[in-house]
Design a protein around this nucleic acid. Structure first.
Lengths: 177, 177
DNA sequence: ATCTACTTTCAGTATTTTCTGAAAGTATGG
DNA sequence: CCATACTTTCAGAAAATACTGAAAGTAGAT
């Protein structure tokens, strides 16, 4: 029978499509642009290097859109561009190791979102430090509590994102016991 | 001098406003509606119970908008409504303890976003389990890796969100050493 | 049963975000 | 230099999301 591998190929393509869509939705819930998440999904589940044109075709998106999201993914460090010898065209390849992906994401979100938020909070705490009255004291304490918590979280994230998977996973398993 | 407390009050109000704005921006980055984050910010930094009308006034938003976001916050468990004896009006109050807030947020995000994503991924893995060919095998492995990682993360989140602050914070500090 | 003091809904509108496609820019090879 | 093979930009269009305000709904008090 020559039917079965053909059938399998279709199932695979369909599954990849579903995964791309799903990953897009997940991304959206976390404040990430849908297309960026889809391009990422496509690249982590594709064995070969992909060009901008191939990605445009696969996701049915415009050049401008593909370009922007590829650049964003590169700037996150989630994919890298590769230039094949003798060719002008750029190809892209994703970091596929799940632990590394995770570390990149938490490290970048820390840098882009957590740090600025902490800065603003600290400034807010500093400004209300010396104010008189119970309202002011309560406000200041609440901001300080938040700020302290974020600082702890920040340190934990930094440490985790620098750790090896081979250390952290067993560690997590022990924690779950 | 009667000037200083007056000055202080203004500084406090200004700081609270800034905090509300800032928290709104942070929320946005994490896929949370700006107004919802602002209402939350307002409620965690206000000592007294607040009515819908007071919130509308404070944030300059419509009744419908205030209503919706208050309901959403209640459904997240981040605020609760209180009815004062002899009054018909509803008032709102936030959970102010930072650790509890954190636990609520991670527990809800797990329930609303992580679990559905895991379901979809597992289905995707199951569907491509038996397919022949190296492409299919690679795809299946990648999905499986992701799925396994999310499962571990899911378990860790569950455990953390059920822990006491008094256990987790010292634990985190030890981890950082 | 009606009034009053609220809460809830939702159609239409406004705002923000994302996307398109064509034009402009850039680098390489001949 | 010019042609080619790309990449980059960006103004306008489309889509997604959030907001308004008025009308409808609800429940306690009289």
């Amino acid at each position: 029978m020559k039917k079965e591998p053909e059938q399998d190929r279709r199932t695979l393509l369909q599954a990849r499509d579903d995964f791309v869509t799903q990953w897009g939705t997940i991304g959206t819930a976390w404040g990430i642009n849908r297309t960026m998440a889809q391009v990422h999904a496509l690249l982590i589940t594709t064995a070969h290097l992909m060009s901008t044109d191939e990605i445009m075709e696969d996701l049915k998106i415009s050049r401008g859109n593909a370009h922007k999201n590829l650049r964003d993914l590169v700037s996150w460090g989630l994919i890298r561009s590769v230039v094949r010898k003798g060719e002008r065209k750029e190809y892209f390849e994703a970091e596929k190791n799940v632990w590394k992906m995770f570390c990149i994401i938490i490290r970048e979100r820390r840098r882009r979102e957590l740090r600025p938020a902490m800065g603003a909070l600290q400034e807010c705490a500093a400004r209300t430090k010396g104010l008189k009255g119970p309202e002011a004291a309560a406000f200041n304490k609440q901001i300080k509590d938040l700020s302290d918590f974020l600082e702890l979280a920040d340190n934990v994230i930094t440490k985790i994102s620098r750790s090896e998977q081979s250390k952290m996973v067993p560690w997590a398993l022990r924690f779950l016991k």
